[in-house]
Amino acid sequence: MAMPWETAASIAHNVFLLLDGWVWTCVLAADEAARLLRSATH
């Protein structure tokens, strides 16, 4: 039983948004950690 294209596209879009938000959060956390490490060593 195949999914309609609209349903598949909607699921793919939601998964992309979820992953994009997760990656952005990791980037921000890593940037903050690097900033804290730089300020601790100087």
Rank of each mutant, 00 (worst) to 15 (best):
M1E: 15
M1G: 15
M1L: 14
M1K: 14
A2P: 15
A2C: 12
A2F: 10
A2D: 15
A2K: 15
M3F: 08
M3L: 15
M3T: 07
P4I: 01
W5K: 15
W5G: 13
W5L: 15
W5R: 15
W5T: 14
E6R: 14
A8Q: 01
A8S: 05
A9S: 11
A9H: 06
A9C: 06
A9G: 09
S10R: 15
S10C: 08
I11L: 12
I11F: 02
I11S: 02
I11N: 04
I11T: 04
A12K: 03
A12W: 00
H13I: 03
H13N: 13
H13C: 06
H13P: 01
H13Y: 10
H13K: 12
H13R: 13
V15Q: 10
V15S: 12
F16A: 09
F16V: 04
F16N: 07
L17V: 08
L17Y: 05
L17I: 10
L17A: 07
L19E: 00
L19H: 00
L19D: 00
L19A: 04
L19N: 02
L19Y: 00
D20N: 09
D20T: 09
D20M: 09
D20W: 08
D20C: 09
G21Q: 04
G21L: 02
G21N: 10
W22F: 07
W22N: 03
V23Q: 01
W24Y: 06
W24D: 08
T25M: 05
T25Q: 07
C26Y: 04
C26R: 13
C26A: 08
V27K: 05
V27A: 04
V27L: 03
V27Y: 01
V27R: 05
A29E: 02
A30K: 03
A30P: 02
A30F: 05
A30M: 03
A30N: 05
D31M: 12
D31T: 12
D31I: 12
D31W: 08
E32H: 06
A33T: 05
A33P: 02
A33C: 07
A33G: 01
A33D: 04
A34Q: 10
A34V: 10
A34R: 13
A34N: 11
R35N: 10
R35T: 07
R35A: 11
R35K: 12
L36T: 06
L37S: 10
L37M: 10
R38G: 07
R38V: 11
S39T: 12
S39L: 12
A40G: 03
A40E: 06
T41L: 09
T41A: 11
H42C: 10
H42N: 14
H42M: 12
H42D: 14
